[in-house]
Every structure is written in C-alpha cells, then in structure tokens.
C-alpha cells in the first residue's frame, strides 16, 4: 500500500518572523542582520519611497532580525510542531506565568507582508532624498531636530563652514601669530556663497 509521504511544509517547521508594519521605521537593521538575504530594502527615488521586501521561503528563522529590530516591529513565533510541546509546558506551570504566542500557520503566512513601501525624507538643504522619513521621525524623539533634517553631506559642509566662524574667535595656543586676521567682510561673503550654493543644487534637482 503505497501512500504518499506526508508533505512537510518547511514554513511550519521553522520559527517564523511576524512583522508589524505600523511599528517599522525602515531603518534597515533587519536587512543587514539577515544572513539568508530574505529581506531587501531598495529605494525608488522617482516615487520618493523605499521598498521593503520579504521572501518567506528564503527565511531560515534564525531570529537575528527580531533581535536587532530597533522598534520591536519583528517578533519570532515558534514553529508548529514545537508549539504543541510549549502548550504542555504551559499546562504544567503552577502559576500560569507562561504565555505562548500562536504559531504561524499557512493562512497567516500567506497574509504576511511581503512587500511594502515607506516614504523617503528630503534634505532641507540640497533637496536629495537621503533616508526613510519614519527613521528620521524615530530619531527625532530623542535627538535634537537641528541636524536631522539635512543629509550627511550637508551636515559636513555646515560643520566645515562653522569652522570659519570658530577661526575668527579661537587662536591656537602654540602660534597665535600664525592665524590670519580676517575682517567681517570675508565672513559675510562666505556665508552668502554657502547659501546660494545650497539653493542652486536644490533647484537643479
């Protein structure tokens, strides 16, 4: 009597990541952490969005994405066959301290988010798209908002420009005579040219 061997769906025998889109900020930590390349994050500059993709078939269920997620948007559920054992463990706990999340079955996996997109943030100085807008909003909750709205290159040019202002006030202790004395006219020029440079780049894009 030749019966077909039972088909084991590997999706049910491995832990599955459960993804909550409302918590995700598209920072890319899960993409960097995934060793199976199951997750990708790719920008679409024309639509000003960053596209997040997940391939459940490639996922090995290692749980690195859940461990490194900055906002707790990814959690790992136990696989189906382990869930039965977990239920027994839970039944014998005298105080009921153990709660177990239900396993990811085929129905919920088919509904799992495989592709979604997030808006990109525009640099307030040069006008380039430089990061996910949600990641910037997440950082703004605990970092000062003074520099977050500009891209990395604009932050550097602002820092370099501020060194000119410091040069006028600060003289190095060793050689105070070496520092050229600059009048306020040159300082004003540099400030004006910096601003027009930024606005020109913004218009060109």
């Amino acid at each position: 009597m030749a019966e077909n061997p039972p088909v084991i769906n590997h999706l049910q025998t491995r832990p599955q990541p459960v993804y909550r889109q409302d918590l995700c900020i598209a920072c890319g930590a899960c993409v960097g952490a995934c060793r199976a390349s199951a997750r990708t994050l790719r920008p679409d500059f024309e639509k000003a969005r960053v596209i997040w993709r997940f391939v459940p078939e490639a996922c090995t269920g290692c749980g690195r994405c859940a461990r490194y997620c900055s906002t707790g948007a990814i959690t790992i559920t136990p696989p189906g066959h382990l869930h039965e054992y977990f239920q027994i463990i839970r039944r014998y706990c005298p105080t009921g301290a153990i709660t177990i999340t239900p396993p990811a079955d085929e129905l919920t996996l088919s509904k799992a988010v495989k592709e979604t997109s997030f808006p990109l943030q525009k640099c307030s100085c040069c006008g380039n798209h430089y990061a996910s807008a949600f990641a910037i909003a997440h950082l703004a909750t605990f970092l000062p908002d003074t520099f977050l709205s500009t891209c990395t290159a604009c932050r550097r040019s602002k820092t370099a420009h501020s060194l000119t202002l410091q040069l006028l006030k600060i003289h190095p202790p060793n050689s105070p005579a070496d520092v050229p004395v600059r009048d306020s006219g040159s300082l004003f020029e540099s400030r004006v040219s910096y601003r027009t440079e930024g606005s020109k780049r913004g218009r060109a894009r």
Binding site: G28, F147, T152
Partner: peptide, 18 residues
C-alpha cells in the same frame, strides 16, 4: 558586530560616519 543598517549615519550631528 556592525550590520550596516546606517542608523548611526542619520544620528551623527556632523555627518562624519559613512
């Protein structure tokens, strides 16, 4: 340890991480 997510690049005030 670094996974290259780039969140430190966004957090740097002077933009000196790439």
């Amino acid at each position: 340890k670094c996974v290259g997510c780039g969140i430190c690049v966004l957090a740097c005030p002077i933009g000196c991480i790439e």
